[in-house]
């Protein structure tokens, strides 16, 4: 087993509001090892981006980490002040966001942005940094680097811009990359190019990747393991093939069934009744119980958990104990 790069334990993110404290991320534990791609999947409001943002130290106030720890290669990073976090972000953790146009400064040439980032994180001088920038651009598959290095972001297409953003994230050879919906804004044929690129680069460098997306297809083709989130909690975690083919949690199961298939014909798509609860109205017990066909008394009373040290599992009483009757605790 290779070493653990990211270790998140019992993370809890809260947003104090006038009407009370909302819990956006509730007791999440996960680990990513060197060279591993962990997909974090969930629907809008599941807390997947919040998890990514708290690792990057970019939670918007009043959001805050209320409990839990985040370790990067053994160093605790969740309690760092802004300055110390700034030194970690970019150098040790790279970030790739959904919209490549807003991740780049429209007023600077892409080459200058790369050079600035490289110089910020390494000791290279201007000339050496520019050589390095060109190398990176070649590596991410930008054609005609000599000409394109002095272009502005708007002169690139969406796919090419996202390649530049990936180059920026790789500048300092980070240990971890957090990619939040990196392909959502792109067309399918470009999407495949970008995920393949991300995968190749991380394999070669042994970078750990947290790939946050709503697209199960992207996860299936890119990630090694997947964490499924629901209403701020971890519903299920495990190897991609297991979770996709043999989902343990009824929510994961419903989610898979609701995706129109490319090879099987169904008259009706499987539906999960209702919708995800709002953060101010998360039901008692298992957050999924009002929508779950198997819910029993225990699901309405107690929150099922995946043990912190588990790398595989479903937060579901039925999957864990085979019964949804009241547990011995009640």
């Amino acid at each position: 087993m290779s070493e653990v790069v990211l270790d998140v334990q019992n993370l809890r993110v809260e947003f104090p509001t006038r009407k009370g404290v909302l819990t956006a991320v509730d007791d999440i534990s996960l680990q990513i090892r060197r060279g591993e791609i962990l997909g974090v999947v969930g629907e809008s409001g599941a807390g997947k981006s919040m998890t990514g943002m708290s690792i990057l130290g970019l939670l918007e106030p009043p959001g805050r980490i209320a409990a839990g720890t985040i370790h990067l290669s053994g160093d605790r990073i969740d309690n760092l002040d802004d300055r110390a976090m700034q030194a970690v972000r970019g150098r040790r953790i790279g970030a790739i966001f959904q919209d490549p146009l807003t991740s780049l400064n429209p007023l600077f040439r892409v080459g200058d942005q790369l050079v600035e980032t490289i110089r910020l994180h390494t000791d290279l001088d201007k000339t050496a940094a520019r050589v390095r920038a060109k190398e990176l651009m070649r590596e991410v598959g930008i054609p005609a680097v000599e000409e394109r290095i002095d272009s502005y972001p708007h002169q690139f297409s969406g796919g090419m811009r996202q390649r530049i953003v990936i180059a920026l994230a790789l500048c300092a050879e980070p240990e971890l990359i957090v990619a939040d919906e990196p392909t959502t804004a792109l067309d399918v044929s470009i999407q495949a190019q970008i995920t393949a690129l991300l995968k190749r680069l991380c394999r070669e460098r042994g970078t750990a990747v947290m790939l946050v997306t709503h697209d199960m297809g992207v996860i299936a083709e890119t990630a090694d393991r997947v964490a499924v989130m629901y209403a701020g909690r971890l519903a299920e975690i495990g190897a991609v093939d297991d979770v996709v083919r043999r989902p343990q949690h009824p929510y994961t199961n419903g989610l898979m069934g609701s995706i129109p298939s490319l090879s099987n014909d169904v008259e009706e798509l499987q539906m999960i009744p209702g919708s995800m609860p709002r953060l101010n109205a998360i039901p008692q017990g298992c957050a999924f119980n009002p929508r779950c066909a198997h819910a029993g008394p225990r699901c309405r009373a107690e929150v099922p958990k995946i043990a912190r040290e588990e790398t595989t599992g479903a937060a579901c009483w039925l999957a864990q104990t085979g019964t949804v009757d009241q547990g011995e605790a009640a």
């Binding site: 297809g217 992207v218 995706i259 298939s261 490319l262």
Partner: peptide
């Protein structure tokens, strides 16, 4: 290019 859940082509 569309990812297929049933038959993911992981190294295309």
């Amino acid at each position: 290019t569309i990812p297929d859940l049933e038959a993911p082509r992981r190294d295309r």
